[in-house]
Design a protein around this nucleic acid. Structure first.
Lengths: 206, 206
DNA sequence: TGTACATCAGTGAACGCGCGTTCACTGATGTAC
DNA sequence: TGTACATCAGTGAACGCGCGTTCACTGATGTAC
């Protein structure tokens, strides 16, 4: 590929990757179209041949983020240690993705994109991680004969995992506050409590 | 109090309240000093007699937010239903605060303020909610003779409650996806699983 | 009680900045013949 | 194989905007005497 051509070749992909890098290093508020263009070595407006506007670029980033999240979850789900439930593996994949891509994770879940319902690919990619968790959980529950409903357990599991990821990224919990040695141990210990949850159910009566 | 005076009387408080209203209605990205001044009926720069810069105002908002959060938790902790553990009450107070003040909640935990360690009042107010949870949890655990460490249980509990609040605010879970009738039932059901967690501990061996 | 004066809360014009987006354009490319 | 031409990716100047912050200032206030 020669050094300088008028046509880029695959500008769309190059723009996405540049945006991804800027997002990772400067956060969502540091991500401007002008910086994306500059890093790609292209005029500030070349981007409009590939995206309608900024929101469309952000939606693309978020969609790809959800795909990476699913990959991370299923990888860790397969690679889990002996005696660990699949749920713990998925949880580890979820949290590891979040702490390796904090700004992207924030973009995916935060209100960074106004009307995300306008982007069906984003919505469906987003649902996939939840489905992976609840499917796995349904299997565990069936094995255990628990009485707790899958949808409540699924919400609780997703909440715990998502909350842990968020609190770590925001610096609110650390291995030190959790009384363990490493982030990895924190993930394992906390997500290990998930199975305990759906075995015993709530102690609240009423 | 006469209608128009050169000196406001309590401009600092009025600015904080205006900022709070704008935050609630327009979100963090819609909150500018000029709008705060305009809503307060004061020149754009009057604010600088009371705050060093925008960050200081945001830090004040977040600090007050944490104080409100603590109040909500202890109120709901006291008002909990018969048979419910204190933990469930605290969790309900936490989530209700979050969904009643979504933008403020995001400011408090998100990375909206650059160097929040510079604001000791904010840091200590922020720690209080966590302490309330872990203290309550420590009491429950002592009652139950569980073997799980308080710090791991505390992290797990906070994670679940914080995650639920966040996912509700981001529109990722709803009563419908959770298979229940109302937000309130969702809070009760999900946070009710907390006690189950610290009773049984992890099933993971290793 | 009346006056002089220091204090400082609030003013208003102005600054420089980076932003997303528009517009008419230019030039490289691939295809039809 | 060579040429004409339609396509459209990428250009560059310009737009209007709202922003945080600065600066020298003004005028209300409370206090000392």
């Amino acid at each position: 590929m020669p050094k300088k051509r008028y046509h880029h070749g695959n500008l769309r992909l190059a723009l996405i990757e540049a945006a991804d890098n800027i997002l990772a290093s400067s956060g969502i508020e540091g991500l401007s179209l002008r910086k994306v263009a500059q890093r790609t070595g292209v005029s500030a407006t070349a981007l409009y041949s590939h995206f309608a506007d900024k929101r469309e670029l952000l939606a693309e980033l978020a969609t790809r983020g959800f795909e990476q999240l699913s990959v991370s979850m299923s990888e860790q789900g397969k690679a889990r240690g002996a005696g660990e439930s699949e749920m713990v593996g998925l949880a580890r994949g979820y949290v590891l993705f979040a702490i390796n891509h904090p700004a992207l994770f924030r973009l995916m879940f935060g209100s960074g994109i106004d009307d995300l319902l306008e982007f069906p690919a984003l919505v469906s990619a987003g649902s996939k991680s939840y489905a992976m968790m609840t499917d796995s959980l349904a299997r565990e529950i069936a094995d255990n004969g628990s009485t707790t409903s899958v949808s409540v357990s699924g919400t609780a599991a997703w909440s715990m995992v998502h909350g842990l990821a968020t609190l770590i990224n925001d610096g609110r919990v650390t291995p030190h506050t959790c009384g363990v040695e490493s982030i990895d141990e924190m993930i394992t210990q906390v997500s290990g409590m998930l199975i305990g949850c759906q075995c015993t159910g709530s102690t609240g009566s009423s």
